[in-house]
Simulated assay, not measured.
Amino acid sequence: MNPKTNQTEGVTGGFPADQGYYFPAEYASHEATWLSWPHKEASWPGKIQTIYAPYSKFIGHVAAGETVRIMVRDRSMEEFATSCLEKESVNLQNITFHHFPTNDAWCRDHGPAFLVNPAADQKKVIVNWNYNAWGDKYPPYDLDNRIPEQIANYLGLPYVSPGIVMEGGSVDFNGKGTLLTTTSCLLNPNRNPHLSQSEIEDYLRKYYGVKQILWLGDGIIGDDTDGHIDDITRFVSDQTVVTVVEENRRDANYEPLRENLKMLESFRLLDGSPLSIVELPMPSPVVYEGTRLPASYANFYIANCCVVVPTFRDKNDDRALELLQRCFPDRKVVGVDSLDIIWGLGSFHCLSQQEPKV
């Protein structure tokens, strides 16, 4: 494995884990949240204009507690984005725009992976994974694939390029050495067909600074990412996960989610302790133009001052919000309508990437 790095001091010449770097939990303090302003109509065919109000509401909640850095193509897109934010009374003082053009909006997957080491002289570095739009499903993605390097150069941070495909939505972390993922995504031959499971684990350990990888199985129906973990199971503390369950036995999600729950119950963390598991309901199936969409309350985003949860005008919305509020007693849990956004096959977590504070 020969990592490619830029010439900035930091990770040049070695793996991030060897130098004490690791990917923090999302609930650790953020320096900022990075977003790529949605503009690709093919991602929301016939609906893109309807997403800007809820997307701007999401930004408003996050910006109440941290800087939000929004990537746009040019001045014209920045002006349009500003007008959308102003309509939702977003405080623009915490908003900054960056003219980094993108192909699409899914910053969780094409954005940088920020690692930290508080004891190092260079306290923050970036992993520049390759990105291929979930197995070459939605070309072109050349602009998206350049984003981590552009952000690293803008921030003056060193970066390391492992040379394989990896997406932020496919992994979740407790910041204490444990990573959650799925076999359906990371072992899919449309990502890294030349790598075995053990070889992929080697990359995860060396480039994310984790010591333990916990593998779940399949994702939810309608998920075009082949089963991202951020639609099913998320860490909410060092030892606690929330995981979605389907209560309707006739639903196609019932069995795979039940299997994932059984696996979670069998796992042990690095200290030998079991996971504390909170079961989160699924909304009723969301179907648009004959397509079942990957609607899930697990696709929430943990910001400094709040947790923004997608809601679906469903009977389980309030229940999901109440369960998550108990998981985050130090943050306000807010629901934002995602019924139009989910037509793009993702929601607030898929759209965002946190930059940790160190």
Rank of each mutant, 00 (worst) to 15 (best):
G20A: 05
G169N: 09
E66M: 06
L155S: 04
N130I: 02
D109G: 11
A252P: 15
Q212V: 07
L179A: 09
Q325P: 12
N174A: 15
I302M: 07
E201Q: 09
L321R: 04
Y254K: 03
A152W: 00
N128S: 14
H30D: 08
D104Y: 01
N94C: 06
S266L: 06
W44V: 13
W34N: 07
I126Q: 01
C305N: 14
T96A: 12
Q325L: 12
S43D: 15
I221Q: 09
I302Q: 12
V286P: 03
Y55R: 00
D314V: 08
P329R: 01
V236K: 04
I147Q: 10
E255P: 03
Q197S: 07
I51R: 06
V165L: 13
P189G: 13
E246C: 13
L257I: 11
M1E: 05
R268C: 07
G222Q: 04
N145Y: 00
P294D: 05
P274I: 12
V160A: 11
P285V: 08
I302H: 04
V278P: 02
T5N: 07
I221G: 03
G346R: 02
E199C: 00
C185D: 05
K357E: 13
F114Y: 15
F267V: 11
S237M: 02
Y138M: 12
G60H: 05
S352R: 02
T33I: 13
Q325N: 10
